[in-house]
């Protein structure tokens, strides 16, 4: 309790320096959480991507009914497949005519049905990674009766490349900002320690242990981190209420974005841990 009292006294005594540190930590944690929210939303968006994907398996001309059945059975047995529907080339032509509506005259130039028999394959919604989808497609392509497989490869690859890039960027920014917050706490505590050097000298003469001398600084670093985190949470709240909610109301296409409000509790805890880490590093090599 006495250490806590000393820590609070020191925070009040050095209020401007501590306030500046808290503000810097708050801003950094807010940026960190903003990056985390972007990465989180992209992850959320892409996790259901395979579900939206329809894989069209085009069969070769003249495939027998037996071969057809064996392809159907092999695809259906795959754990990534949700459902599979056979589409005959006649049905495919009917569907095409329906979708072309008044423009179906385009098809009148064909003497024969130019389409192929095919299967429409739906991928399961949960727990299926894009690697598994690619494995399935390779497997289908290798079947004798299969002519080709279409699944919007380019779009999917672009989205996943973007996701990977964002993840890497998020991780880099995360590491940089975590180090920066720790460094701010480290510097603040070190400066405070040197400012209290005479006081510490007296403590030592009176028989204070290392722990007694260090505890107030550990607590002070943690408290600075907590308040920095609270400021970051405040900024997040402000952003959520005054910007994000209006944005979603005005432009509904952004409605898919979600901000997990658990970050509000998480930020002060992160701040505390980083503050404590900075303090431990600051006092780690000192002889007291």
């Amino acid at each position: 309790m006495f250490s806590l009292k000393l820590a609070f006294q020191s925070i009040v005594r050095e209020k401007w320096m501590n306030l500046l540190s808290m503000l810097s930590i708050g801003v950094m944690l807010f940026i960190l959480v903003a990056v985390a929210i972007i990465v989180y939303n992209v992850e959320k968006l892409t996790v259901r991507l395979p579900e939206r994907l329809t894989v069209m398996v085009i069969l070769k001309e003249g495939v027998t009914s037996e071969e057809n059945k064996s392809v159907l059975a092999a695809i259906k047995a795959d754990p990534a497949v949700k459902s599979i529907v056979f589409v005959s080339k006649e049905k495919a032509l009917d569907d095409l005519k329906k979708s072309l509506k008044k423009d179906d005259f385009i098809l009148k130039g064909f003497v024969e049905n130019p389409l192929f028999d095919s299967f429409d394959v739906k991928i399961k919604s949960e727990g299926i990674r894009i690697d598994e989808v690619k494995r399935l497609i390779q497997k289908i392509k290798s079947m004798k009766a299969v002519e080709d497989v279409e699944y919007g490869e380019l779009l999917m690859d672009s989205i996943y490349a973007l996701k990977r890039g964002l993840r890497a960027l998020g991780l880099s920014i995360g590491i940089i900002f975590v180090c920066s917050v720790t460094f701010i706490c480290y510097t603040t505590v070190k400066i405070l320690f040197y400012r209290h050097r005479d006081e510490i000298e007296v403590y030592k003469l009176l028989g204070a242990t290392r722990w007694f001398v260090r505890a107030p600084f550990f607590l002070e670093g943690s408290i600075i981190g907590i308040f920095g985190g609270v400021l970051g949470s405040g900024m997040l709240m402000g952003f959520y209420h005054y910007f994000f909610r209006r944005l979603v109301t005005d432009i509904p296409m952004f409605a898919f974005i979600s901000i997990p409000l658990q970050f509000l509790y998480l930020l002060p805890v992160c701040g505390m841990l980083l503050g404590l880490g900075g303090s431990v590093l600051a006092l780690g090599r000192l002889k007291y």
């Binding site: 007296v202 030592k204 242990t209």
Partner: peptide, 23 residues
């Protein structure tokens, strides 16, 4: 070195410049 603080508790020290905490 970890026992030095405990030994110091048995030694009272007085200095010319007092070494009081002015705050």
């Amino acid at each position: 070195s970890s026992y030095i603080p405990l030994l110091r508790r048995n030694i009272g020290v007085v200095f010319q410049d007092f070494k009081l905490l002015n705050n």
